[in-house]
Amino acid sequence: MKQQKFAVTVDDLTVAYNYKPVLWDIDLAIPEGVMMAIVGPNGAGKSTLIKAILGIIDPIAGSVSIYGKPYKKQRKLVGYVPQKGSVDWDFPTTALDVVLMGTYGSLGWIKRPGKKEKKTALESLEKVGMLSFKDRQISQLSGGQQQRVFLARALAQDAAIYFMDEPFQGVDATTEIAIINILKELRKEGKTVVVVHHDLQTVPEYFDWVTFLNVKKIATGPVKEIFNDDNLTKTYGINYKVSVQK
């Protein structure tokens, strides 16, 4: 695999909430085309890292670049799946309409989605197997279906890099497999996928790259080389044993 080109570069990133650092001097380079898990305990700053990369939270120090340029100039290259709990699912809208929101970024201000955008949204819904639910009000969807709609929305962004905040949270095994297959498909197309992940057991199976995070960056690299008890213990602070299939 060619690993010289970096999709995302993070330099000396520090983020604080009320002057308490939640991310401390993070340096991170994510090679193009990897499927990377960000792992770490609760409060390690995993979501914060993604939000800081996407400009949703302002860091107090450091910088982020997407293919060598600031995020603000590269928005269209980046897709985002927030945590499912971050929105109000009682909002009066349909699955299709939520997916359509993924196309808003390429439209810019004022312009409205037209036929082309609707086609993209329908295709994205189809990819996640949710086409038959397109007119369903979003509160009428199950948790797994809502997560698929979120994934479809990111697909509609047609990005080069995808950031996903716990896409497997609260979904059943079938949906998890469906989602991971779509992510693998994305990687095959040469896209970079970054996922905040909780289930350590599945890291070696799903991902080829991993970043250990606990306020500071503990380690980052190929799963085969660095996903070991030593790094897990350093990250989680307890003697962590996980069977890694090498």
Binding site: K51, L54, G55, I56, K72, R75, V78, Y80, P82, S86, V87, D88, F91, T93, V98, M101, Y104, G105, G108, R153
Partner: peptide, 13 residues
């Protein structure tokens, strides 16, 4: 979009 999902709205500019 900013009412439904402020995070994505920010990310999209």
């Amino acid at each position: 979009i900013s009412t439904f999902d402020a995070g994505l709205a920010t990310a999209l500019g």
